[in-house]
Design a protein around this nucleic acid. Sequence first.
DNA 1: GCGACAG
DNA 2: ATCTTGTCGC
Length: 239
Amino acid sequence: MREFSHQSWPKSKAEASRRQKETASQIRLLPLDEEPHLITAVETVYGNGSDVLYACAVTMSFPELEEVERVFAEGPPGFPYVPGFLYFREGAVISQALSNLKETPQLVIVHGHGTAHPRRCGLASHIGVVLDIPTIGCCRRLLTGHHRELPPTKGANQPIMLATRQVGVAYRSKENVKPIYISPGHRCDLPDAVSIVQRCLRGFRQPEPLRLAHLLANKLKQRSEKKIRVKPELAEETA
DNA sequence: GCGACAG
DNA sequence: ATCTTGTCGC
């Protein structure tokens, strides 16, 4: 996939905020220009103690949802964790993982928000603009905005409102389970974002590509950190 | 000033 | 995100 164009990372929240406003002006929320055949999901997990991020990107056929490719990357965060500024923390390692893909997908689902963001430029939107690819943000928790309560039934949904604008959808992807939060990132609109995520569900809370990316990113992390765990009460005997 | 706050 | 065992429910 397209090579990541290196950027400098901001040194302050003010600078980061300014970058987001500039980037937001480049976001295009239009219907997908083609039915995707390949969908990639990318997810990052955090190392224990060590300051390392582990990213995994998984490509699946669509709508069959069979895995076709998995790639990884790891590296240091580019920014401290500050709610609203995830791109500057995870963007580099995510871009690196995506650049390892042999085949370019027609759409990328990012674990994070798209336009459901204080400056309407969440992780998914920023990744989409920088790499010029269609993206969707799919998140487990709300960062900003509000929505009415959802019935417990699968498929229930409510608009996520930011001031008077709808920036996404709270969607009950599984009965009696907390909703997921869907918002378009770039080169995709809200109806298409919701439709695609719906069609990626396979009985779990998270859409299948994201669920798999999460599992594999954690597998990479555990292999990389080679943890040796011993039950405390058995430590003496073992030692 | 206070609360809220993706990973 | 993570620290954390068993447990309740589909």
